[in-house]
């Protein structure tokens, strides 16, 4: 499989001072159709990584390339979903889903003439996440889990080649979260879009991803890469598999270590001052 997303020695600095370095020397590569997860202690620059890959931010040094092209500005082949569902409260669910189609070319130009076809596509997507009965509801009439399903649909409606997820299930209760892992996995298994999932939840990473990147404390860089070779489709049973627990355990230790190093470094800086 060819490389789809690649970061070569990438650094990101929000301003000139050394202390605002968010990422430093990050290198990672993700193959086309792969599901990658990025985990790390809080404040390790995971969200900065999202902004770099999607081109919303330019790297200070190093190269970011997607689909063989250097990223120079916002990409147009991306779907994004965040922890906050950010559905538009004045639009009904179906019309919320269609929002990306009103913006992305070539759909934008075709939407008026081929409306039925697109509505059908949105309905199909709603059906896969079990929301087909709710297309006429306003988002605020739905529970948090339902809103997040809709958010996921919205990020997929234009069939992006790259899906970026920033802790999409972070605000949900444990049961809803695990249910949505299954939903996301089954959509991904049929469509095979390249996915980058940023998360705090190690079980979530191990359940969903083909490969897990572990990042260090700020300034972030990739300190370990773990392939997850568990068979798919994975289920909640899989999470009790000794091999699964092994992976989660190993990553947990690595993060504990970088957190301690981070704390020690911070203490040293304080003393020096």
């Amino acid at each position: 499989m060819p490389e789809f997303v690649s970061l070569q020695d990438v650094s990101l600095n929000y301003d000139v001072s050394e202390s605002s370095l968010a990422l430093s020397g990050t290198t990672m590569s993700i193959k086309r159709g792969q599901f990658a997860a990025v985990v790390g202690p809080s404040g390790c620059g995971k969200s900065s990584l999202m902004k770099l890959v999607t081109g919303l931010k330019r790297s200070t040094s190093g190269t970011v390339s997607v689909a063989g092209n250097k990223v120079n500005g916002p990409l147009k082949i991306v779907g994004m979903a965040f922890q906050n569902p950010t559905l538009l409260p004045w639009r009904r669910l179906l019309s919320n889903l269609m929002l990306p189609l009103e913006i992305v070319q070539p759909h934008r130009g075709r939407l008026r003439a081929h409306r039925d076809e697109y509505v059908e596509r949105a309905r199909d997507l709603l059906r896969t996440v079990g929301l087909e009965e709710f297309e006429d509801r306003y988002p605020w009439m739905l529970s948090g889990g339902m809103q997040q399903r809709a958010n996921l649909c919205r990020s997929l409606i234009h069939e992006p080649e790259l899906l970026m997820l920033d802790e999409p299930f972070g605000a949900l209760d444990a049961f809803t979260r695990e249910e949505l892992w299954g939903v996301l996995q089954s959509i991904w298994m049929t469509k095979k879009f390249t996915t980058i999932l940023v998360t705090h939840d190690l079980r979530e990473a191990a359940y969903l991803a083909d490969v897990i990147f572990v990042m260090s404390a700020r300034p972030g860089r990739v300190i370990a890469t773990h392939p997850v070779d568990l068979p798919r489709p994975r289920t909640i049973e899989t999470t009790f598999d000794p091999h699964f627990i092994d992976i989660v355990h190993k990553i947990r230790n690595e993060i504990a270590q970088v957190r301690n190093e981070g704390k020690a470094a911070a203490a040293r800086t304080l003393k020096a001052v």
């Binding site: 916002p74 147009k76 991306v78 994004m80 929002l99 913006i103």
Partner: peptide, 25 residues
């Protein structure tokens, strides 16, 4: 919401798109 802006910008939305689809409503 800044996240919503990010979602739309990463779809190639223009300033006018943001204004008419999200800002004004």
């Amino acid at each position: 919401e800044p996240e919503l802006e990010d979602v739309l910008l990463s779809l190639g939305a223009t300033k006018a798109d943001l204004l008419f689809k999200v800002g004004l409503p």
